[in-house]
């Protein structure tokens, strides 16, 4: 009896799949992944030289991130209770992650001074990444779409430049300008090798900015591109079966992207901590 019913259900599912394959698809639609990441100006503002200050999709996402930050800060500021609720417990867990796992584990000195910046980077990037996984109506023709501020190279580049500037500011303030620059190469090395090491270090300082920004940007861009391709394939194939299959796959990709969003924020913050900590406590 039970076996029989199982067979009937299986047969129905198979029949459904076959019908889905045979059914002609929905309306044909153009789909271009690049369009998902294009930033057309929404509000035109004057540009200063090459710097076009127009408000586009990315700026709107930055504002949304700032808005979420403000809402979180408002609720935290209003309702800190001795016995935490769910929201407060989640916030405290993130806060302790930033304090103990990121700042506490990679910095030796200057933890108090640099904690706000590194934890701020962590929260900002995390919230920005997570906001990017919520469908918002800023795609073509105000339709729902996925986009993240951190999936734009210039946003991540700005964040990496902040870390770059603060790294050298911390190093100069802590060690003095001359000693800081001289300590880029170990004093014990022989003369020519020492200059070579110094040049390599100077180049690596620049490449840190590149790797820091490109890592975050490429991760978010790749994740969103894969999500967009999975959603767009349903339009391209014009077939209900393929659409159902790819929607199932996109759920898995989406879950993985949640993980990536978190990990990338963690890595960005922890590398900022490593760089600033390295500038504070130079090896001699």
């Amino acid at each position: 009896m039970k076996r029989g019913r199982l067979f009937v259900i299986l047969a129905l599912v198979l029949l459904g799949v076959v019908v889905l394959f045979l059914l002609p698809g929905g309306e044909s639609a153009e789909f271009d992944v690049v369009e998902e990441f294009a930033t057309h100006p929404l509000i035109h503002l004057p540009s200063i030289g090459p710097v076009d200050l127009s408000v586009n999709k990315t700026v709107v996402y930055l504002w949304i991130t700032f808005g979420v930050v403000c809402v979180l800060a408002f609720f935290i500021n209003r309702g800190v209770k001795p016995v935490p609720g769910r929201f407060q417990f989640a916030m405290e867990t993130l806060y302790e992650l930033a304090r103990d796992s990121i700042v506490g584990s990679v910095m030796k000195s200057g933890r108090e001074t640099w904690f706000p910046y590194i934890a701020g980077v962590f929260f900002f990037v995390l919230i920005s990444n997570l906001v990017g996984l919520v469908p918002l109506p800023f795609a073509e023709h105000w339709s729902l779409g996925f986009y993240a501020a951190t999936a734009n190279l210039y946003v991540t580049l700005s964040l990496a430049l902040c870390t770059f500037v603060f790294t050298h500011y911390a190093g100069v303030r802590n060690n003095g300008p001359v000693a800081y620059v001289r300590n880029w190469a170990p004093a014990s090395a022989p003369p020519v090798l020492r200059q070579l090491i110094w040049v390599i270090h100077a180049v690596s300082e620049v490449f840190r900015v590149v790797s820091l920004s490109v890592r975050l940007f490429a991760n978010m861009l790749a994740g969103h591109a894969i999500l967009a391709v999975f959603f767009g394939m349903a339009l391209l194939f014009q077939n209900y079966a393929a659409a159902a299959l790819l929607q199932g796959g996109s759920v898995l990709i989406y879950l993985f992207e949640l993980f990536v969003a978190f990990i990338q924020a963690f890595i960005f913050a922890i590398l900022s901590g490593v760089y600033i900590g390295g500038a504070l406590d130079q090896e001699h």
Binding site: S101, S211, I263, Q264, F266, I270, L271, V274
Partner: peptide
Amino acid sequence: VNMFIGIGV
């Protein structure tokens, strides 16, 4: 923590 740093790099 170090594993995640290495993964990132």
